[in-house]
Amino acid sequence: MQKALLEPLFKATDIPPVTKLKIASWNINSVRARAPIVERFLDEEQPDILCLQETKAMDNVFPAELFHSRGYVHHELNGQKMHHGVAILSRLKLQDSGRHDWQDNGEARHVGARLDCGIRLENVYIPAGGDVPDRTVNPKFGQKLDFIERMTRWSEKLAEPTLIVGDFNIAPLECDVWNHKALLDVVSHTPIEVETLERLQQAHDWVDMGRKFIPAPERCFTWWSYRAQDWAASDRGRRLDHMWCSPSLAPQATAHRVLEPCRGWERPSDHVPLILELDV
């Protein structure tokens, strides 16, 4: 057989460089329980990278084949049994992975990696904070605030173009909730949480992609409680999920979408996916 026939039809140099990126973020509320809607989302939207929060699966039982079969062969996982857990699933190479324990208690709430184009991608699941917005009677609330303060110290030192995505569990603007006055004392929208998140944003001059493309006070929610009999009719939503860009990266963003219809899919998460498109 001639030597030429043994050579691959395509070489690495034949693959065109990536010039556009489509990155999705979704609190899936158990990746194994919601595998059918993850499959549907990937098939319909075809993102280059999917960041998941609240996967609720140890790394050794994560449904990797679901992603491998669709070309997402690069995985960065930080799993935990029954709780928390984050994952980055990518068609593009991931390198220099890292995990921050911003809660300082070993919970799996962050995973990050660098893309070949030079962008650092960070995927985070900030604690919900319990039901009472008072750290003296509710330690979970204090842990949430401390988590964000540690992120703030980290943000102050950032020197590379970074995209941070995930479930921040805070709706910062008055228009980010269905009723500002009704939720002022409800964890996720209290003044102290909003102020703490503002300090995090200012620490790196993060640009909020959600409000860059969907300017306030336009309606924009990413979460609706399971408690509502008809989530769409009551529409008591909150914008808890976010995508923030470093100021040097923000001009490369070309589109941002909130996929609200996913909340009505069969056995849905209470969160919906976000999608950001970037020119790289």
Rank of each mutant, 00 (worst) to 15 (best):
L6C: 05
R227K: 13
V61L: 06
P247R: 07
V137A: 06
L249T: 09
I28G: 01
H100P: 00
Q53E: 04
D205E: 15
R153P: 00
T162Y: 04
V187S: 10
I119Y: 07
P133Y: 06
P247H: 06
Q103M: 10
K181I: 10
H189C: 12
D241M: 04
P47C: 06
E266A: 11
Q143M: 09
Q46T: 10
D208H: 10
S188A: 14
D59P: 01
A128T: 06
D270V: 09
K157L: 10
R32Y: 10
A228K: 02
F10H: 13
E195F: 00
K3P: 04
H204G: 10
E160Q: 11
V31N: 02
L92M: 03
L5A: 11
E39L: 06
G237C: 08
D59L: 00
L66I: 13
A233C: 04
R120C: 10
P133L: 04
R34W: 01
D48R: 05
L66Y: 02
E122T: 04
I164Y: 06
A128D: 06
H256L: 09
V207R: 14
V73E: 12
L183V: 13
L158P: 02
F10Y: 15
Q2F: 03
S269I: 07
P139Y: 05
L184V: 11
F213A: 08
H84D: 07
A87Q: 02
L42G: 05
L6A: 11
D235G: 05
H204K: 13
D208W: 04
P8Q: 12
I49W: 03
H83N: 07
S234R: 08
A159L: 05
L9K: 12
L94E: 05
A57C: 09
M1S: 13
V280A: 12
I119D: 03
W154K: 07
W224P: 10
E76L: 08
A203M: 09
D230I: 12
